[in-house]
């Protein structure tokens, strides 16, 4: 059987069972839409948090009166730690300048104060710290052991809260994702099975005239693939439309002004479309296999 015949048969089939097909496709669309909606929320939380989380890192204070020669060595040791993104040395003078800047108009309080009252320090940025806050702790513990290091600071409390929060958010997304995947697979395969039962006579006749399982299954699989594609496609278009709607209509309050909503990464979009197609294919294949076993 060539591809042209297959496509022709599949299209004819769809036309003849339009209502059923539309219904099944809608079920696929809704399931995927719900899943994507959760993902979108998660992705935006992620995005939001990483914008504000760039400050997140570890501050390493060096011992007072430390030997200048040790500083490059500590720098290299810090950089060598797994998960460290970059390290910036803050000299006593630099720290002082920052403090002045921070105080702004009130910087006169610092007049006559010696810059050396502030210790030398390093700012260590940690990769993906926001989403794996536990890393901060691990890295801080390692840094403490370096010679010449006096104190290590990181927003411990905040990090702990963040840990809980991102953990929950991730679990919710993953759990709802898995649940929805199963629901979708289940509902789709039930719908398909009903469809197959409704057409039992046709399948019986096909078998009678010597159709191979492949010939019988071919159009069904084709339809299923198209269904997965359509279902996921429609869900993504709907989600994108509402995303555009919301993000253009959303007037951000002052402090997060300029913070834009982001859409799902294209990799996830492609993955969802692919998965949807595979799911529909498998659902159809397994509900037909029962029937095709003579």
């Amino acid at each position: 059987m060539n591809l042209e015949t297959l496509v022709r048969r599949a299209l004819k089939d769809i036309r003849q069972h339009m209502a059923m097909y539309a219904l099944t496709t809608m079920v696929v669309t809704l399931s995927i839409l719900i899943f994507l909606f959760f993902s979108l929320i998660y992705v935006n939380l992620h995005h939001f948090a990483s914008r504000f989380g760039t400050q997140l890192g570890v501050v390493v204070y060096l011992k007072e009166g430390i030997n200048e020669e040790l500083i490059p060595k500590i720098y290299n040791e810090l950089l060598a730690i797994n998960g460290v993104k970059n390290v910036v040395y803050i000299s006593q003078e630099e720290a002082f300048k920052r403090l002045e800047r921070y105080l702004g108009d009130e910087k006169m309080v610092l007049e006559g104060v010696d810059a050396t009252f502030l210790p030398d320090s390093f700012e260590v940025k940690v990769e993906k710290a926001l989403f794996q806050p536990e890393r901060l702790r691990v890295i801080a513990d390692k840094i403490k052991k370096i010679e010449g290091v006096d104190k290590v600071q990181y927003g411990r409390e905040w990090v702990q809260r963040l840990e809980v929060f991102t953990g929950i958010a991730r679990n919710v997304v993953v759990a709802s994702g898995i649940l929805l995947l199963f629901t979708a697979a289940f509902v789709v395969s039930i719908t398909i099975r009903l469809n197959v039962y409704a057409r039992q006579e046709e399948l019986e006749i096909l078998r009678l005239v010597g159709a191979t399982n492949g010939f019988i299954e071919g159009p069904f699989l084709m339809e299923a693939m198209l269904q997965g594609l359509l279902g996921a496609g429609i869900a993504i278009v709907l989600l994108y439309a509402s995303y555009l709607n919301v993000s253009s209509g959303l007037l951000m309050p002052g402090f997060i002004k300029g913070l834009k909503l982001v859409f799902l990464p294209w990799e996830l979009v492609v993955l969802v479309v692919g998965l949807s197609m595979v799911l529909c294919l498998l659902g159809t294949h397994f509900s037909m296999r029962k029937f095709l076993r003579s």
Binding site: R207, G210, A211
Partner: peptide, 10 residues
């Protein structure tokens, strides 16, 4: 074989 039955049925 199961796979050849449809062909034989012809």
């Amino acid at each position: 074989k199961e796979a050849h039955k449809p062909i034989f049925r012809r």
